[in-house]
Nucleic acid binder design. Structure first.
Lengths: 109, 109
DNA sequence: TGTGTTTATGTCATTTTTGACATATACTGG
DNA sequence: CCAGTATATGTCAAAAATGACATAAACACA
């Protein structure tokens, strides 16, 4: 986790905390962001594979199309809770979730 | 996921939604709760194994001892984001996290 | 017993996340 | 081109989560 990567996350709108201990605290936050990106990517795949529209998924999830779009777009306003709930709502099992955990998401240059 | 289990989660303070579609929507929420419990349990283990106090962990995390206690207690007011950040803060790797994903947490009778 | 440390529980003002809505922009067949 | 469907983006009031604080309870170990 280098500082270039951190900068990229910041410009993407992520609030990777400006706390005192830049090289500790923020790294955990950045790890979380990476995890989220892996999962949202997995979500998009899972949803499309099953031919569910964002609107459909939103209904299953008790949410709105716009929020589903934001989840998949990796919007910083989306919690891990919601991402995981969305994944479950597509029918993904815990094991599938687990798989998504391994892959590290590349942050576009 | 039976309805007895759902009742237990509810009495533990979890807001497993009373949405129309009890046998779909709430099940995903319950799955999320189970996942959270697995992770908080893993967190407690990870922290204790490394002889870190809740106060120490709170500092690393930029949080407070009371919140760390709540995380480990499986308090419903704690987000998945915070649980995962806490796990990372103990030094847990993504692979360790992944392991915690498999184990299903028993809900005390 | 007392003293220090760790963990638990309750409360609350502030911050973050949410669903909903409007609206814009793709994308797909006709 | 148009019409229908899917997805993206911005905004906002309401709801949920947060750190901080007080304080209690459990634990250790002299």
């Amino acid at each position: 986790m280098n500082s270039t990567k951190l900068k990229k996350l910041r410009t993407a709108g992520w609030k990777v905390s400006s706390a005192k201990d830049f090289l500790n605290l923020s790294v955990e936050e950045a790890m979380l962001v990476e995890l989220k990106l892996s999962l949202t990517s997995a979500l998009k795949e899972a949803r499309q594979k099953r031919h569910i529209s964002q609107t459909d998924l939103a209904a299953r999830l008790g949410s709105s199309q716009s929020r589903v779009a934001k989840i998949e777009a990796g919007d910083p306003s989306v919690s891990l809770d919601l991402i995981v709930k969305a994944l479950f709502a597509t029918g993904a099992t815990r094991r599938e979730l687990q798989r998504a955990f391994t892959a590290t998401e590349k942050i576009a240059a």
